[in-house]
Amino acid sequence: MTPVCDPKVQAAFDAFPAPAQAAAMVLRKLIFNEAAQDPRIGPLTETLKWGQPAYLTATTKSGTTLRLGVPKTGGCAIYAHCATTVISRYAQAFADLDNVEGNRAVHFATAQDIAPDRIALLIRHALTYHL
């Protein structure tokens, strides 16, 4: 697992409630795993956007930003830019399998609610969105 290098990002994760933090760490690992599988993605930049851990393809510009956060309803969510088709295409492909918030996020109550194979497709789509 890639360690969190930015203390501000670590502080953001530390501020998550324990169940949300566990889910966020699962999603974070999937993000880094997907990036490592495709050399076109290149290295990821882990930073904060809107106070949330965010993942950018700053070197290659191959993808759109993904963010991890705690929605008002609780749990954890993976967010993509709402002007992209990342979430809407995921929702079409996997209708009614996850808690999708419009065209901006997929929510998970716990880490056990994350289907790694399914969410990896969303992550791969986001990280290669501009290719």
Score class of each variant (00 low, 15 high):
Thr57Gly: 08
Thr45Pro: 02
Lys29Ser: 05
Leu56Tyr: 00
Gln52Arg: 15
Thr128Asn: 15
Val70Cys: 11
Gln21Ser: 06
Asp96Cys: 05
Ala91Asp: 12
Asp98Ser: 09
Phe108Met: 09
Ala120Val: 01
Gln10His: 05
Ala120Phe: 03
Ile119Asp: 07
Ile119Met: 13
Trp50Gly: 01
Asn33Asp: 12
Ala24Pro: 03
Arg104His: 05
Ala91Val: 05
Glu101Ile: 08
Phe94Val: 12
Thr65Ala: 15
Arg104Trp: 03
Asp96Arg: 12
Arg118Cys: 14
Phe32Asn: 09
Arg28His: 11
Pro53Gln: 08
Val4Tyr: 03
Ile119Arg: 04
Gln52Tyr: 01
Asp117Thr: 13
Leu68Ala: 09
Asn103Met: 08
Thr59Pro: 03
Thr73Leu: 08
Ile31Thr: 07
Ala105Glu: 12
Pro19Arg: 07
Cys5Gly: 13
Asp98Gly: 03
Ala35Thr: 13
His125Met: 14
Ile123Trp: 04
Leu48Gln: 05
Ala22Thr: 12
Cys82Ala: 15
Ala105Cys: 11
Thr73Phe: 01
Ala77Tyr: 00
Thr57Phe: 04
Phe32Val: 05
His125Leu: 10
Ile31His: 00
Gln10Asn: 12
Thr84Trp: 14
Ala77Thr: 02
Ala111Val: 04
Lys29Thr: 07
Tyr55Asn: 08
Ala115Gln: 11
Pro7Phe: 06
